[in-house]
Structure formats: C-alpha cells, structure tokens
Design a protein around this nucleic acid. Structure first.
Lengths: 100, 100
DNA sequence: TTTTTACATGAAATACTTTTCATATATTAT
DNA sequence: ATAATATATGAAAAGTATTTCATGTAAAAA
C-alpha cells in the first residue's frame, strides 16, 4: 500500500486541520501581513500566533521577511496551497457559501 | 471572512489528518471490509478500530451494514472523498510515488 | 544609552485526541 | 441453554497539540 503517500497526506491534513492556521493562509492570499496584524485579526496572543506561524513556516507554506522591526509573512507557492484552494472551492460549492 | 467555509475545512482536514483513518478510507476504495479484516490489516486493537470507524461514520464518510455477526464497512459517496482523491493525486504527483 | 516596540522561543499548563481496558450486545456454534 | 465470535461503547490512561507565561533579541524611538 502507498504508505508514503498516506504519511504525506497525514502531515498535510494535520497542518490544515486548524482554524487559526487556515485563517492565516486565507489572509495571506491577498497580501502579506505582519505578525501584529495577524494577532489583531485572530484575536490571539502574540506568542500563540508566532508558534502557529512557525508551524506554517516549517511546513514551507509561508515565508517570513524582516522589515524594520516587523516581520512580514507571505505565502510560499507550495503545492499544498493548490490543494487547499481546491478544498475551499469544493466546500464553497457543496455548502453553497458564495462570497460571505 | 468565510468563517463557515473555514470551519468546514477544519472539520474535514481534522478527520483526514490521521494515518489510520486515511488507511481505512484507502482500503475501502476497492471493496468493503469487515471490522476484523481492518483490525488485522492496521494491526490495531479491535476497540481502537471501532472508535476510528465511528469517527468516519459520524462524518458520513463510510457506512456500516450488518452481515451475520460481522459488520461490513464501505465508502459513502461523500464530497470529502473527492477532495481526498484530489489530494492523493496531488501528493502522488508531487512526490513521484507512482504505484508503490 | 535607556526605553519601547515587534517578534521568537523554551518550558509549563491546558486542552484535545487516540488508545486501552473492561464490559455489554447480538449472532452463530455446540 | 451455554459457549464462542464479532463488534460497540464508556471511562480511564496515554499521547499529542495548542496556549500561556516568562524571558530573550533586534530594531527604532526617546
């Protein structure tokens, strides 16, 4: 059986199976955000956000760039994001969510 | 923001982010399996398998049918499986896994 | 150069998931 | 009827993920 494929899928789905991380990815689709902007939007502690950003960084889903004393995060062009995109379209379609 | 879509995605990805559940789904693609068959293949305790099957049942990814004293599990035709299928193709392609 | 702001990080605390253990129910075999 | 087999389930135990807390570092401001 395709155990390698299954392990990869597990990793990917684990990372995506979290509201805050999904929201961060969704945000970054339009532009880059600084950590404090994300903190404000997600209403989480700065530290928790940094920890989540690290998960996304280590999975190569996002990249960070230092700008003065801020750090800007932006999407890497990862294959996983294509997958997420498909999933989103799928969910939008199935639940008839339109552009809420 | 699309909080409903994100919540749905979180749910779906959480369910798929587990090796045993992925393996079960992958197995059931070809035919239905009884619980004890799955127990043998996954090398898990019967009870653990039943618990995982419940998760899949509750998410409507699989269905159960009693056959004598066995219970056969088979895939429902859920939209989530289409998503999983895309993901698998994606991973196969990206990692060049062929038919291992 | 001292203070403030923005972010990161390790460790402890908390919350959540998965497995195990004990036991219950239904079906078939004796 | 009794025993054996297949599965399910609740509760405790074990494992994993996430958040919080305390603190560190680098850049900008005072």
């Amino acid at each position: 059986m395709k155990t390698k494929a299954i392990s990869e899928l597990e990793k990917i789905f684990k990372i995506l199976g979290n509201k805050q991380r999904l929201t961060i990815l969704e945000l970054l689709r339009s532009r880059s955000y600084s950590v404090s902007e994300i903190v404000d939007i997600l209403n989480m502690e700065q530290s928790a956000v940094s920890h989540q950003l690290r998960v996304l960084r280590e999975a190569q889903l996002v990249q960070a760039e230092k700008r003065g004393r801020e750090v800007l995060y932006y999407l890497s062009d990862s294959h996983i994001l294509i997958l997420l995109d498909n999933a989103l379209k799928h969910v939008d379609h199935v639940f008839n969510l339109g552009d809420e």
